[in-house]
């Protein structure tokens, strides 16, 4: 049954996939995707991003677990489930000799929708493909072919769009265009799930970011929350004389002592704390406590760092 009020447009419950050869591509994935959001799935090659998308779209049978699309089970109620989904695959697959207009119209019909030239025109125009509508696909550049695949996926007016590495092998200018296209789609109310290698892309586009590693979803977080981690800074104070512990007079500061006692590390949030990072007070208190600092430096953790750590972590 469909529940229009449910904010979770996709519910993935205990989803796993083990291929015939014994390779476990997905392990017990649980994920809710919110209506109207852009969710970026980050992960290294072979992490299971494409497999996850393929299971949701019905290209791969799950080994266990289930996927609900707008409340419809994607295996047992595949018609209702699939009618809501548009898929843009990673590979530029197409029928070389067919014309843009024909292939996009074909996609609409294949999803059981009656002909609607006005809608096809709207889709082609929004993707700057209108001028190319009578071109055979073989005459188009790679970027244009990618747009045709997006147009095909949008031909049946899906509520949910999967973009599997939409900007892989696309130059920087075109990548920006593609992001703009995706934003417009989101503004029109389409829920978008995209996979990417590029952290910059996730940072630029996503409302939420999921990280997949070795078939497991290791993190799903609001981008804002992640950005706060991004904004976290560390001030390391190198001491002239080692300490045995953090002096009680400095306990009000968020300080940790390194193992060798030669440095104090002060963590603060440059964004959240604003002008008052507490550094001035800390330095004054250090002086009062008679602790001599011989050097200091600050560093910032990047999303890239968070991502790399997550992906490496406990393999």
């Amino acid at each position: 049954m469909s529940d229009a009020q449910d904010a979770r447009v996709i519910r993935i419950e205990g989803l796993g996939k083990t291929f015939a050869g014994g390779f476990e591509a997905l392990k017990d994935i649980d994920l809710d995707i919110h209506r109207g959001e852009i969710l970026a799935l980050l992960g290294p090659n072979g992490a299971g991003k494409t497999t996850l998308i393929s299971v949701i779209c019905g290209l791969v049978n799950p080994t266990h677990g289930r996927v609900l699309i707008d409340g419809y089970d994607n295996v047992r109620q595949f018609r209702q489930a699939r009618a809501r989904i548009g898929l843009v695959p990673q590979e530029l697959t197409n029928d070389a000799f067919i014309r843009v207009w024909d292939t996009v119209s074909f996609s609409r019909g294949l999803f059981g929708k009656p002909r609607d030239p006005a809608h096809i025109e709207k889709v082609l125009r929004s993707l700057s493909l209108w001028e190319k509508r009578n071109n055979r696909l073989i005459t188009l550049s790679g970027g244009m072919k990618r747009r045709v695949l997006i147009a095909k996926a949008l031909a049946h007016e899906p509520e949910i769009l999967f973009l599997d590495e939409p900007t892989a092998g696309v130059d920087v200018a075109l990548r920006r265009d593609m992001w703009e296209v995706v934003r417009q789609l989101r503004d029109s109310g389409v829920t978008i799930i995209l996979t990417t290698h590029y952290i910059e892309e996730a940072e630029e586009m996503a409302d939420r970011i999921g990280v997949i590693r070795a078939g497991e979803l290791v993190l799903v977080e609001d981008k804002q929350a992640l950005m706060q981690q991004l904004g976290r800074k560390e001030l390391t104070l190198h001491l002239r004389d080692p300490l045995d512990g953090v002096p009680p007079t400095l306990s009000q500061h968020r300080l940790t002592l390194t193992e060798d006692g030669h440095a104090l590390v002060y963590a603060y949030d440059a964004e959240a704390d604003g002008d008052d990072t507490g550094i001035a007070r800390l330095l004054a208190d250090l002086e009062a406590a008679g602790i001599a600092v011989k050097d200091l430096h600050t560093r910032q953790s990047s999303l890239e760092e968070i991502f790399v750590n997550l992906v490496k972590e406990a393999a």
């Binding site: 290209l59 018609r79 489930a81 989904i85 197409n94 059981g112 095909k152």
Partner: peptide
């Protein structure tokens, strides 16, 4: 379509 990969579309259609 299997060879070229376009079969994905048929398999993901509500058919």
């Amino acid at each position: 379509p299997r060879f070229s990969g376009t079969i994905y579309e048929v398999l993901s259609a509500p058919m």
